[in-house]
Structures are given as structure tokens and as C-alpha cells.
């Protein structure tokens, strides 16, 4: 009798899970379908211009998405390049070198940074960080190595550089707190096995902690990347929303656009022009496809490494 009631609840539980999974898949398909449907006017009129075109002028119905797409990919990539090493340093310091007394403080700060709404980061970047960076960082750099196109002037305070920096600050807490978690789960017997061979602390980190944490840190990085790609509010406020980068000016200090900033800043006005509106939706579709393919590739890579390591 006990067995019977057990299996009843188990069945109920299983079918609830199934229904929940179906609902999620259904919502996703619906969402994907409506994006595609509403992209069609733009795609049928302008074709692949949304991917390849380099200028954007609603008055002449020119809708080239390349600068925004590149802006999204570039600012997120730069944010990762900064955030990953910083996060690893934080995690190593936290779990391996830093005094135990400091731990609640570090994790408190990380949780706090992760909890700040992105509009706050946007305001802070716009009013505080932007002028400081402009005067103390961008201008001196332009003055000294401005002949390199990547660092050429003029110094727009609001720039792809500032957007990347804000994104770095936003995703570092995510990647570092997951990394801290994984680092501190490294089994003590493995650490001790390495220590017993005469390893230094750093050799233990390199030979035991890193290999153990590799897959988890990779997953955390993908999570951070997803956050950076999709971040809208803060980026829209600090990137300057111009369309000169990277085709008219390759400089890091030039203002630019991302997919999300383009959509956020033009969507309200676009409702009067169906092609304009549809072009913005096509950009959204591109962003969705980028996110999906990154997750897909990440899944494959992590499966492969799992197969090789057998852990």
C-alpha cells in the first residue's frame, strides 16, 4: 500500500515536471516564432544587410546591423578578457592566500555588486566614471600613443571602452563568486596529496585546484558572457549610441552601439515605420541566435572535456 501511494506521488511528480518542461519549451518556441515573424518584413526587403550593412538611417530605410552586432560581440569579449583573470585572482586570494577573517567581507562585496540594478551602474558610469576616465585615462593615452588607430582621438567619455569596463564590473562578481565556490570544493585529500610531494602552494593551485575547477569556471564564464551580451540598460547609458565604431573610427575611445542599446534607444520611435521596427526585431533575433550558439558550443566543449577527463 505504501509502495502504491509512493508510486502515485512519483507519477504525479514526474508528470508535473514534464508539464513544466513543456511549458518552458512552448514559451521558447512561441518567442522564437514571433521574433522570426516580425523580422520578415525587414529581411525580405533588405536581405542580409542587417548582418553586413555598416550604416543605419531610418529616413532612407538603410538598416545595416554590423556595427551594433560587432559592438555587442566586442564589448562582451573585452569584458570577459578583463573579468576572467580578475575573478580568478579574487577566487585564488579568497580560497588560498587571503586571511579567513577577510572572507565574509569579500563575499559580501561580491554579493552586493551582483545585486546592484544595472541602471545604477549606468548612472554611475555616465556621471562619475566617464568624466574621470576621459580626463585621466583616455586623453593622456590619446596624447601619447594616439597614432595607433585603436587608441586614436577624440576622447568620447561615453565609449565602447567605458561600456566594456562597466560590463567587466558587472560580470566579475558573477564569475568570481562561482569560482570561489568551486575552488573551495577542491577535495582536501587531493590538495594534501600534492603538498605531500613537496609542492608549493602555487604548485598545488596549478596542478590540483585549477584542473579540478576548470569546467566550473568555464561554465561561470559562459554565464557571465551571456549576462554581458544581453545587458541593456547600463550599456545604453554609457556607450554613446553612435554608429561610427568600428567602420568610421576603430578607436576604443569612440562612442558606439550594441544590439541592445540600439533596440532600447530606437524602439519607441520605430513603431511608426514597419521596416525600422522589423529591423530592430531582426537585430534581437541575431542576439538570440548568438546566445543560443554560444551556449550550444559551450555545452559541446564541456561534454568533450568531461569525456576526456572522466570525472
Amino acid at each position: 500500500m505504501n509502495y502504491k501511494s509512493n508510486s502515485f506521488f512519483e507519477k504525479l511528480f514526474k508528470s508535473t515536471l514534464k508539464i513544466a518542461a513543456l511549458i518552458v519549451i512552448g514559451i521558447f518556441i512561441l518567442l522564437f516564432y514571433s521574433l522570426v515573424e516580425r523580422s520578415i518584413p525587414s529581411l525580405s526587403q533588405n536581405g542580409l544587410e542587417i548582418l553586413l550593412g555598416t550604416s543605419w538611417d531610418p529616413n532612407f530605410e538603410i538598416f545595416g546591423g554590423a556595427p551594433a552586432i560587432l559592438g555587442t560581440l566586442f564589448s562582451s569579449a573585452i569584458a570577459l578578457v578583463f573579468a576572467l583573470p580578475i575573478s580568478l585572482c579574487i577566487a585564488i586570494f579568497y580560497t588560498e592566500y587571503g586571511p579567513v577573517r577577510l572572507r565574509p567581507f569579500i563575499s559580501g562585496v561580491m554579493d552586493l555588486l551582483a545585486a546592484i540594478p544595472s541602471v545604477i551602474y549606468g548612472i554611475w558610469g555616465l556621471w562619475t566614471l566617464s568624466p574621470i576616465l576621459k580626463i585621466n585615462f583616455q586623453e593622456p593615452i590619446i596624447a601619447s600613443i594616439g597614432f595607433i588607430p585603436l587608441f586614436s582621438g577624440p576622447a568620447y567619455g561615453l565609449s565602447i571602452f567605458l561600456a566594456s569596463l562597466i560590463l567587466t564590473i558587472m560580470i566579475t562578481p558573477i564569475i568570481s563568486s562561482i569560482s570561489i565556490d568551486i575552488f573551495s570544493k577542491t577535495p582536501m585529500p587531493l590538495r594534501e596529496g600534492m603538498f605531500a610531494l613537496g609542492a608549493t602552494k602555487w604548485e598545488v593551485i596549478k596542478n590540483v585546484v585549477f584542473p579540478f575547477a576548470k569546467r566550473g569556471v568555464f561554465a561561470a564564464t559562459i554565464l557571465g558572457l551571456g549576462r554581458a551580451l544581453g545587458e541593456t540598460m547600463a550599456v545604453t547609458m554609457v556607450i554613446g549610441n553612435s554608429y561610427i565604431w568600428p567602420f568610421k573610427s576603430i578607436s576604443l575611445f569612440s562612442s558606439a552601439s550594441t544590439i541592445t542599446s540600439k533596440i532600447a534607444s530606437e524602439f519607441p520611435e520605430s513603431v511608426v515605420n514597419i521596416i525600422h521596427n522589423s529591423s530592430l526585431i531582426s537585430l534581437a533575433l541575431v542576439l538570440l541566435l548568438i546566445s543560443i550558439s554560444i551556449n550550444f558550443v559551450a555545452e559541446i566543449i564541456s561534454k568533450k572535456s568531461a569525456g576526456r577527463l572522466n570525472v
Partner: peptide, 12 residues
């Protein structure tokens, strides 16, 4: 050198 009570080969 040391051999531990529980085997601890490096899994990676």
C-alpha cells in the same frame, strides 16, 4: 614521503 590512509590519486 607519505602514503595516505585513503587513496588519493590525482583524477585529472
Amino acid at each position: 614521503g607519505m602514503v595516505f590512509q585513503k587513496p588519493n590519486p590525482f583524477p585529472n
